[in-house]
């Protein structure tokens, strides 16, 4: 990691040329794994995240099963080769445990798990390449994978990070902006009714900045949500089995 803090905003533009409200280029491909019931690959800037959904299937261990609903399980992991710094072993660590938990809780709100008592639904999210904002990209991928698996859900969850860099509120941070910015706030929402399903924050924001950031997050989530929908429709629509979509930023 560079010792010096780089300049994050140059002439009103961010280091990679985006404006404050621009997302990085996003490409969502649904239905990429054959053996999983549902799957998705999200390429979000330099992030690459693969999500796979298995189930509903027999709950193991048996004593975890509920007679009332399916148990939702999430596993977020970062591959050891996913970033510039050495990550060491890829097994569960404190950070991935936390992310798995918060992502699971976000999805527990939308999955209609009462339809499948005594079963479990597994969601695996593997970060193949990381560049900041992996939890948001992972949630976006997992939501597409769940829909691709045909699991009944109340909504298609989408997520985006907002925050403050060099004193200005902006959306969708890259790694440098995340590391050297003042504040980072990942948010997952249910776009149908605007429910907030995940809300975390590092750093500080004033009240005005927070409300401003929230509005920007909602606008950005609408863009992500449209891409998710298009990716799912493209599985059954396009001449190719899988669909790819690139979000056109005004560049």
């Amino acid at each position: 990691m560079a010792k010096e803090k780089p300049q994050l905003i140059i002439d009103g533009k961010r280091a990679d040329g985006r404006s404050m409200e621009d997302l990085r280029p996003i490409k969502i491909t649904a239905h990429v794994l054959n053996e999983a019931q549902g799957s998705a690959l999200v390429e979000w800037g330099n992030n690459k995240i693969l999500a796979g959904v298995y189930g509903p299937r027999e709950c193991i261990p048996r004593h975890d099963a509920s007679p009332y609903r399916a148990v939702v399980r999430c596993r977020y992991t970062m591959a050891p080769f996913c970033s510039l710094e050495e990550h060491g072993r890829s097994g569960p660590n404190r950070r991935s445990h936390e992310l798995s938990k918060v992502i699971r809780e976000a999805f527990e709100n939308v999955i209609i798990s009462e339809a499948y008592p005594r079963t479990q639904i597994d969601i695996y999210m593997e970060v193949l390449q990381s560049d900041g904002g992996t939890r948001c990209a992972a949630i976006t991928a997992a939501a597409v994978a769940l829909a691709d698996a045909g699991i009944p859900m109340k909504d298609l969850v989408c997520a985006v990070a907002v925050g403050k860099i060099d004193g200005q509120v902006a959306v969708d941070f890259s790694k440098d902006e995340d590391n050297y910015g003042e504040s980072d706030m990942p948010i997952a929402i249910a776009p149908r009714n605007g429910d907030v399903l995940l809300f975390q924050m590092d750093g500080n924001l004033t009240r005005e900045e927070l409300s401003n950031a929230l509005e920007m997050a909602y606008r950005a989530c609408a863009k992500v949500s449209a891409l998710q929908a298009a990716a799912l429709k493209a599985v059954y629509d396009g001449p190719k089995p899988q669909a790819s979509l690139v979000l056109g930023n005004k560049q």
Binding site: H31, M153, K154, L156, P191, R192, L232, K233, D237, P239
Partner: peptide
């Protein structure tokens, strides 16, 4: 479970389902 793959051979013009696909929510 093997999943469906849309074959490349069908005629695109006959396909009118596009707007009929509904998503969760």
């Amino acid at each position: 479970m093997s999943k469906p793959k849309v074959c490349e051979s069908y005629d695109r013009r006959s396909f009118k389902m596009k707007n009929n696909i509904v998503l969760p929510g």
